[in-house]
Every structure is written in C-alpha cells, then in structure tokens.
Nucleic acid binder design. Sequence first.
DNA 1: AGTCTGACCGGGG
DNA 2: ACCCCGGCCAGAC
Length: 113
Amino acid sequence: MKYIACPGERFERAVYDIVRLVPPGRVTSYGAVARAAGLRHGARMVGRIMSRSGEGPEDIPAHRVVNSRGVLSAVGTFPEMRRRLESEGVAVHGNRIRNWADVFWDPLEELSL
DNA sequence: AGTCTGACCGGGG
DNA sequence: ACCCCGGCCAGAC
C-alpha cells in the first residue's frame, strides 16, 4: 500500500488508514503519520484530523498518536487518551510517554512504504 | 486580503 | 532535558 502526496480527501483517508494500523501498546506521532501519508509538513493537519476524528462513525485509535517528543499534547481536549494508553500497557509519566524510543511505532519503517 | 490560532516539528542555545 | 524560534498549513474571523 502506498500513498502519494496529495492534499485533501486523499490525504485524510491515508491518515485514517495508517492510524488504524498502529498496534495496541505502541504509539506514533503526528509528523510520522503525515510523512507516511506523503506530506512532509503535514503534522498540523494530522493533528486537526485527529481532533475531529470523534465526529464521524469511523473508529480509529486516535489516542495512539502523540507529538514528536512523546508528549500527550491532546490530553487537554481528549482526557480519556491517557487512560486508554495505560490500559494498553503504555507507561505514561506526567503527560510524557516512558521509553518513547522503544514504544514509538514508525509507519514508514514498519510498513515498508 | 490580513491576522491569529492550533492535538506540530527540528534545530539551536 | 528544557525553552525558544522560525517554518509549516488550513480554517475561522
């Protein structure tokens, strides 16, 4: 499966497809998803897409996407995020993920795109 | 059209 | 490890 750099609906669909593949117990980042979806500078867009992801019927693990430093930057508007991660075995200290380097799941690498 | 604001990122200090 | 800054892009005024 491969995605081409094309903004708009295609990009959004690619983002959804990728996020759905993040396994429980692992976490990825907005920027990493953006790059895998073909937009090098699309991190903010991914963030926006995640923030609206609760609206539709689409069911995706938005809690498994955090910022590039392993911090739960969304916990303010998405409080359940932390509990969901912990229930999957991800250790969180403050709002920061422990062993970030080990828990990090990079779509580009894991999915050979 | 101009400006501000984000669930962002990388580099530099 | 922390903070700051400039760059990034789309949406809301």
